[in-house]
């Protein structure tokens, strides 16, 4: 854009009326905004249609685009979604899995990230590469023997296969990597002076490292929440007892029960996704930074 003023010769050939730089930018920005607004509308439309569908009557559903908005919003669709299935049970199951997974992930990732970042021990660098490589392995390769193992120690039909691995760094290679970078960023002098003052590594870890890496810990908590809340495959395989079902499994069961009743299905789906949307809106910055980290430093 800057170039135009520097090439007056070329500009004389153009037949467009001469526009000032400011006007040109205004036009360019308006076009860009127009494109972005229409694209956003396109991306947001499914959410809008989901909500209006959830508030329609079955008769209105069949009339498609003739009825954009329901004549009277059918709020009871949401009540049906909550009362026709044990919604509270599914919700508390999901919350139980989510909170224990977060606890386990924070426990295992912080400790091992400290070992990778601040301690030197034989094999550390090799294990670090192994850890990065585990991100590439399809889950199916370890799924079957794990399933057999859990069957043999009597864990099938319990929630343990979906909780215990988190306490041992299961599926959290990326988080360890993220935390390691954070820990490495903390000046060496800080830890060294603490050692001089007689503090052990556990004290340093607990009193210096963890408080200083709160943003990373929040990011890990949020990502684990999203993953476990939304996970379908793990619960599908391990939670055979309906009393242990999570919202994701409950939603699927709801689909089978009310197949064709998209008004009810959309109401239930909205309720399931609402917490993730709210948390995302409240903590977008942490999310965006975390995702950015995967792509650029990873």
């Amino acid at each position: 854009m800057v170039s135009d003023t520097e090439r007056p010769l070329k500009q004389e050939h153009t037949e467009l009326p001469k526009l000032t730089m400011k006007q040109r930018r205004l036009i360019k920005n308006s076009i860009l905004h127009l494109v972005l607004v229409s694209l956003s509308a396109l991306f947001m439309f499914p959410f809008f249609w989901m909500l209006t569908t959830a508030l329609k009557t079955p008769a209105e559903l069949l009339r498609g685009t003739e009825v954009l908005l329901p004549a009277t919003p059918q709020w009871q669709n949401f009540r049906i979604a909550v009362t026709q299935v044990p919604f509270i049970l599914y919700l508390s199951n999901s919350l139980l899995l989510v909170s224990l997974s977060i606890a386990g992930t924070l426990f295992s990732t912080t400790l091992s990230a400290y070992a990778f970042a601040k301690l030197s021990w034989p094999g550390r660098d090799t294990f670090f590469i192994v850890m990065l490589a585990t991100m590439m392995i399809p889950i199916q390769v370890i799924l079957i023997p794990s399933y057999i193992l859990y069957a043999q120690i009597g864990w099938l039909g319990t929630r343990l296969p979906l909780i215990v691995p988190f306490f041992f760094g299961g599926g959290s290679a990326f988080y360890i990597f993220l935390l390691r970078q954070f820990f490495k960023g903390i000046p060496r002098e800080l830890t060294e002076s603490a050692i001089m003052d007689g503090a052990g590594h556990f004290r340093i870890f607990w009193n210096i490292m963890l408080p200083l890496t709160k943003p990373a810990l929040i990011t890990i908590t949020l990502f684990t929440f999203m993953f476990v809340w939304n996970d379908y495959f793990g619960p599908l395989i391990y939670l055979s007892n309906p009393d242990h079902w999570t919202l994701a499994l409950g939603l699927r069961a709801f689909q089978n029960q009310y197949s064709g009743r998209f008004d009810l299905m959309m109401a239930a789906a909205i309720l399931v996704m609402l917490p993730t949307l709210v948390i995302f809106f409240l903590a977008q910055r942490q999310f965006i930074e975390g995702i950015t980290f995967t792509g650029i430093k990873g």
Binding site: L111, S112, F116, S120, W121, F127, F168
Partner: peptide, 18 residues
């Protein structure tokens, strides 16, 4: 050196067991 393994142990155990 010893502490390195202690701190890494949750993940190390997980790596082998899971």
């Amino acid at each position: 050196k010893r502490l390195g393994y202690v701190f890494a142990s949750p993940w190390l155990i997980g790596l082998f067991v899971f």
